[in-house]
Amino acid sequence: MVRPTYILGLLLALAFTLATGLQSETRSWRTRSGEGGLMAMLFGDGRRLFANHFTVKADQYFHSGYYPSIFDQRPEGDGEQPEVHVHDEHCDHENETDAEHGGATEHSVEACEEKSGGWNTASDWIAKFGSNFRVTEHTHLTGKQQRELLPWLKISAELDPHQINTYLVASYWLRKTDKSAEAEKFIREGLEANPQDCELVFELGQIYLLDRKNLERAQRLFELALTRWDAQESAKEKPNLILLANIASNLARVEETKGQIASAISHLERARQASPQSAALAKQIEELKLKLSSPSATNSLVPH
């Protein structure tokens, strides 16, 4: 009769041997199936659905839970849809400053309210009474509270690393909450998954220009972004002209600060191609041309 301790010892030894063999196998799970690693292997393409859900969740947090469900969207052809949009610096609240955008100011909340089309209207007594038990006050997260939406964006990026907007939105909020280093790290993670993406390179350039005040590096990144834009977008039927205008005008800003007025004008002309109606760009070009014609003004722009 074999003693039970021997059997236990044998099982333990077997488990240990198997573990040493399987460890190298589990390491390869991360890189197997090409992109997405373990997540892709576990969830397949379904992970993109979850990723989208978590991005929406982040927006829901930004609105403090005041958010339309799919049932609150009007049927097609019945006027404007209540808009679900993730807030970042690229969305078109044109007249907002950075402080207003995302802040719980009356203006930005009203702007959102106007965009969403007033979906939260109770039509019967059950809905009216039920509104006592859910969020009916539209506020935006402010200050340090804004960090609350970051976990969902991180999870979303883990699930779908090719959703560029997730990295851009997360970077925006990280920078707003004084986490520029984390923003850079996250954008670099995005670049690892999407090495050729010009939007991510542009965002990285902005981090260096606005947060680090590193003009040289910012310029190189904007130039790289412009090269990639030319390679990827220019041949498209509907190229991302807003991105082109942003890259070109930021490059112009860097060149102007460095005193390279002629280069700045040429970049602004490029930006104007993307946004021909922009009166502000036209005015800026005129001002720079004037400066170029008066050398004393040009010299004063050169940093000492």
């Binding site: 839970g65 006592n132 969020v135």
Partner: peptide
């Protein structure tokens, strides 16, 4: 039965005020 009335998780998560006593 409208069970969703008894679910005030969102009010807790977003630190919103409680429903009125009458409700």
């Amino acid at each position: 039965p409208h069970l969703e009335w008894f679910d005030i998780r969102d009010l807790l998560i977003y630190n919103k005020p409680l429903p009125p006593l009458l409700a």
